[in-house]
Amino acid sequence: MRYAIPLVVLGVLLAFFTVGLKRDPRLLPSPLIGKPAPAFSLPVAAFPNTDAAPLKLGNAEFAGKPYLVNFFASWCAGCQVEHPYLMTLAKQGAVTLVGIDYKDADADLRQWLAARGNPYAPILVDLDGRAGIDFGVYGVPETFLIGADGRVLHKHVGALTPEAFERDFKPLLGAGS
């Protein structure tokens, strides 16, 4: 009985630490989940398989089908890591992959694509980072799943991995329609 209270206090502290210390403080929950995706209308950088690319694309052009919005840049190390997996995803064709090139030089982007291939259906350019702010991007790469109804279903911060895609994105692909 004498040790009951200290033991309970210790137990509570341990519980807090085991949960709290395992969390990555850099991963922030997005307030956008479940809300309509931020409106964007951005110039197209590279649009494969079309000769006459529209000058700008926005939410309306992608509505009706779920799609991924992947913020990336040629200067970003995490983007190098996830790029091979994005190529695999593109080959599987399960979901449209919209790339938003974040604060990047056009020449660098072209060099990047030439060296690594282009997994994106269209690549849009966010030169000044305004679209990034609207999406709450705080560190590329960040990947958003937008449902067929235009709502944000999930956000992944950091390089996208097969595990994360299978676990967090795939079950949601049918949602929001």
Binding site: A73, W75, K103, Q111, L127, G129
Partner: peptide
């Protein structure tokens, strides 16, 4: 391994 590219800063 370090990426040779740098972030672009737009003059606003």
């Amino acid at each position: 391994a370090a990426p040779a590219f740098a972030q672009v800063t737009v003059e606003k």
